[in-house]
Design a protein around this nucleic acid. Structure first.
Lengths: 352, 352
DNA sequence: CTGAAAGCGCTTACAG
DNA sequence: CTGAAAGCGCTTACAG
């Protein structure tokens, strides 16, 4: 869109440049540049005159010209497979919040599939804009983007809990899902359940030790000497949880189900209800996320609260440090997840 | 961030310019510009050479330089009060989808409050980037932004259903909430309920006839000769619906409640449950939105499906037409909402 | 402390 | 059909 040359009477139009300000203040455009960049070596009186002219003319620096001339784009773009899932949306919110505080613009680009061409194209477009990249690598498209991202582009990723401590310099942020899954499972075990079944979100870690949410669950089971059932992958949505849940409800031995996210738990709850099984009387259900509505479900959902907004903020902070001060990257987990016990989990049937 | 001058061995670095391509192809950078812009007057053989050079060097046009030189930024930024509410997130998804298809970048800026300074600041920052604006004006911050937006900046807004047909040239997109609310209310009335109570989301229309969702509800009631209870404003969240719901449940005359969105309905459902009232046996509840989990609640929620993604796509299409072809703006509603009857609504108690 | 010059990577007229 | 020149609105050294 044309942003130059059409100053309407209304005024809010961009068109006043650094040169206009310079003329009005009786200095060179150079000096105006120094003032807007907070350069120290400007006489106080000069600075004041320039600032007055800026205020009067309503000058705003062109982000475009600044980016081109300086080689630094004050922007990040987040690549994500989805904007409507609670976790993804909350991360975006966190990024935006932190970016705004630092006067960075935030772009968004959604990854439609994990087709390499699609992902590469998204990466290219995000890179074209200049600025850094934040990847939400919780799913296949995101992980693919992480693998395909070009060298040299500043980048931070929100990832699943890594199996092993990542190499220093890996620009990763995560929550400690393994511990969280273990605790949730232990909670269920302590309630007298013989074992805990697991409805998994799709795993993204093909090779290196598997998903840590799954690992934490398995660990708790193993420690307790419980049978470890086959985890069932259910996707991300309530519909997925429902479909997988219907199969699980056919097995009377199932008395406790841990779900990879709250949406899955909602589907599971529904499947249980249709099968005539009481929650938590017959079956206990726990989720992951603590989405805003989870506390208001009936039964209110026991779930692991994950600080997605914090993950978003941390991603931005890391990236910002990287591009502004050239900070060394240290991969790090963000705030520990916390188990919120509500109504959907209870004593195993016949355990008392 | 620095995007120039550091071509790592890995290659994916930006640094090859139009001039590099020109040299490689043995033409002027001018001609390269023509080729990448699809200008017709380039000899086929020349074009091929240039295209080969582009492919070989991995050239990508700098969006920044293009924007500065041409005065057109191929980008839109969406201003919204929230990214986690389903409706807002789905609109964003729709915008992104359409923008991607048109090779536009999409930025996002969240409006923290309706404080004019905050809103003006967000508007300024969004404008600095160049490109057009899409406002989600479903709430006070968004409506404030609509009022405060500078003239001359290309802009489209997703708005509540206007009370009167807007002036030609108003860059607005909406769903027909009035009809939708009327139909949902009629559905409840047809079930034998004496009247329908209304849990409202905050209205943004101060002056011009009030919220159309409310108006549609009122209209249905009036036509049926039913008592019109005072609508109760409940915010946007499940917590808000719950709080307002608790008050409503104290009134035994309440047998049907229409909620301004599904989150409110979830809170209402919870309040009813705690009060020991059956749904739909004692009280019927209907929502607005048809969020993905609404079909899986117990009871599954009767609700009005709103095509938020379609709204997002329409917003972009309008804006795109405006900035690219200078299309005249025609304000228009998007796909008609549809009532989805599920389990949470049923015959009035004692009506049969 | 401040200004004149050159340049960021493109596009836009203007010539030919 | 193609090239040389000027310019978009800034910043970055370089002088003084």
């Amino acid at each position: 869109m044309r942003v130059t040359g059409n100053t309407r009477g209304s005024g809010a139009q961009r068109s006043v440049s650094i040169r206009d300000v310079a003329t009005a203040a009786g200095v060179s455009h150079q000096t105006v540049s120094r003032v807007i960049n907070g350069h120290p070596s400007v006489r106080a009186s000069t600075r004041e005159r320039v600032e007055a002219a800026i205020a009067e003319l309503g000058f705003r620096r062109s982000a475009t010209a600044h980016a081109l001339a300086s080689g630094r784009t004050r922007a990040v773009t987040v690549l994500t497979a989805n904007t409507t899932h609670y976790g993804h949306a909350a991360i975006l919110q966190g990024v935006e919040e932190a970016a705004r505080a630092a006067s960075f613009a935030v772009g968004i680009s959604v990854l439609d599939s994990d087709d390499p061409r699609v992902v590469r194209d998204a990466l290219d477009r995000a890179t074209d804009a200049g600025g850094g990249l934040i990847l939400i690598a919780y799913d296949r498209p995101g992980v693919r983007a992480l693998h395909l991202a070009p060298e040299g582009v500043p980048l931070v990723a929100a990832v699943e809990t890594p199996a092993a401590p990542p190499a220093a310099g890996s620009p990763w942020v995560w929550t400690d899902d393994r511990t969280a899954a273990r605790e949730a499972t232990e909670h269920l075990l302590a309630l007298g359940h013989r074992t805990v079944h697991y409805l998994a979100i799709p795993s993204t870690t093909d090779s290196d030790g598997g998903a840590q949410r799954t690992a934490g669950w398995r660990e708790a089971l193993t420690r307790a000497g419980a049978v470890v059932p086959e985890p069932v992958e259910a996707g991300w949505t309530p519909a997925g949880g429902y479909a997988a849940g219907r199969r699980l409800t056919e097995d009377p031995a199932v008395t406790a189900v841990l779900c990879g996210n709250d949406d899955l738990a909602i589907g599971m709850l529904r499947a249980l209800r249709e099968a005539g099984r009481e929650v938590p009387g017959d079956v206990s259900v726990a989720g992951f996320d603590d989405a805003p509505h989870s506390a208001f479900l009936t039964p209110a959902l026991t779930t692991v609260r994950l600080d997605f907004t914090g993950v978003g903020r941390a991603c931005f902070a890391l990236l910002h440090g990287l591009v502004e001060q050239g900070d060394p990257i240290s991969p790090h987990p963000v705030a520990t997840p916390r188990l919120i016990v509500r109504e959907s989990t209870g004593p195993a049937p016949g355990s008392r």
